[in-house]
Design a protein around this nucleic acid. Sequence first.
DNA 1: CGAACTGTTAACCATTTAGTGAACTGTAGC
DNA 2: GCTACAGTTCACTAAATGGTTAACAGTTCG
Lengths: 103, 103
Amino acid sequence: MVNSSFKALSHPIRRQIVERLAAGPATVGEVTGDFGVSKPAISKHLKVLEESGVVTRVIDGRNHVLSLRTETLDEATDWMVRQREIWTRLFDVVEDHLKEEQR
Amino acid sequence: MVNSSFKALSHPIRRQIVERLAAGPATVGEVTGDFGVSKPAISKHLKVLEESGVVTRVIDGRNHVLSLRTETLDEATDWMVRQREIWTRLFDVVEDHLKEEQR
DNA sequence: CGAACTGTTAACCATTTAGTGAACTGTAGC
DNA sequence: GCTACAGTTCACTAAATGGTTAACAGTTCG
């Protein structure tokens, strides 16, 4: 699932949609915003977000209401944070080593 | 730059390379590992990682030594963490609202 | 009912991506 | 000098991506 999350986030339009939805649920029309692309293009991006598990959709009359599936995004975030912890630790080791040498 | 970082991380092989490099610098041969793909394929993945600013390369004799450019990855990590903070806050608001209603 | 509205599907196109094998560049070491 | 080694570049393919317009499906409302 981490796989498809990163793929979903690899397009600027999709990231902007996620940014919008992080602030709360919205309809397709609302997330469409002012990207200079057609409705079918947005529709496809939403499909990618949905199939990757990043977004869910609830149909309400003629509106489709979109929400973030935060659990999915949490997984991807955790991967990044975990890597950061690892390379930060490494950096500290190097730092310590340099301090050691200065003495 | 956040753009290309996510794109760089959108392929499982490239993420595994990043995982390897998070633990410390390594040569091309070392990161190649046991993905079932040819050397040219790895070479291309490394090019993507390098051009996206995620990885740097220092040539030492006939070995190319790769390292993570952590600043670049920090940007992407920060984007994710920032979004998480936003949707977490939203979640708390909903939580509070539900508690409010239970009373 | 019929028109307007919200959104998707279908068919198509151009570009990018991910992979391949073969050939090449440069370094190491006998 | 020659061979082995580390890695890239080239030329090519197949599939995926991102976009388009045109047509469709369902909902709302006068």
